[in-house]
């Protein structure tokens, strides 16, 4: 006997993500899900982004890691409110799921925020699959990872709304073709905005900050 089901396997996450999106929009907070592989310079990029946005745009951070509070401590130094999620309590998950964001967001005073940035767990695969109720997704790729990563991890670059190409200060020391990296990102996701930045020298942040301000004020 065949029993017809026709249900999405991740429907529980999707339902919670929709609930999160409603909760955020009621509080007029724009939510950005920031993803990348480990060590791409996400946290440093975020620190500089927060400093450039505050105090005109009030930013809060949810940061996910399997272990440690290191990133929360680094980001807390910017003065922005930070909530750390450690997924080792939940089996060392490789991504942030919508129910974890719900729990973390309720620890924050969202009425006093304009922008909530979720720094996802460093991983170019799993976070791409899980909606957390965000309004936009950003992916950070550092030039040290090689220009072919977008082709190897197409889902991540396909679901992203914006891409940051970080660590361009290291280009003189690398055999990496920056234009090819941009081309590869745009092969996977035609028309996606790509900003070339260095979180170390703070080069190239104007375009990215402008894009983000447009989202928050839009």
């Amino acid at each position: 006997m065949e029993i017809n089901i026709q249900r999405k396997v991740l429907e529980a996450n999707e339902t919670q993500a929709d609930r999160n999106r409603k909760y955020f929009s009621e509080r007029k907070v724009f939510v950005l899900n920031m993803m990348s592989s480990p060590g791409s310079g996400k946290t440093e990029t975020l620190s500089i982004t927060i400093k450039r946005l505050m105090p005109h745009i009030r930013v809060g951070i949810i940061v996910g890691d399997i272990c440690t509070r290191n990133d929360a401590d680094r980001l807390g130094a910017t003065g922005a409110p930070v909530v750390q999620i450690n997924t080792d309590q939940f089996g060392g998950d490789c991504h942030l799921a919508a129910h974890l964001i719900d729990r973390a967001a309720r620890e924050m005073d969202l009425d006093s925020l304009d922008l909530l940035i979720v720094e996802n767990i460093g991983n170019l695969v799993c976070p791409a699959e899980f909606d957390i109720g965000e309004n936009a997704k950003a992916v950070v790729l550092s030039v040290t990872e090689g220009e072919d990563k977008p082709l190897k991890y197409p889902l991540m670059f396909q679901v992203a709304d914006v891409a940051l190409l970080n660590k361009i200060d290291l280009l003189p020391y690398l055999d990496v073709d920056l234009n090819l990296a941009v081309d590869n990102i745009q092969k996977v996701h035609p028309k996606i905005p790509v900003f070339k930045i260095s979180a170390k020298t703070q080069e190239g942040f104007e375009g990215w900050i402008g894009w983000l301000k447009g989202c928050v004020n839009g």
Partner: peptide
């Protein structure tokens, strides 16, 4: 992994299928 339009070589794309994860 390449999503460039073969017809116009330009343009963003909408995904119509390929992200399913369903029990039928």
């Amino acid at each position: 992994p390449v999503f460039t339009c073969p017809a116009c070589k330009d343009g963003a794309v909408d995904i119509l299928s390929g992200r399913e994860l369903e029990i039928s």
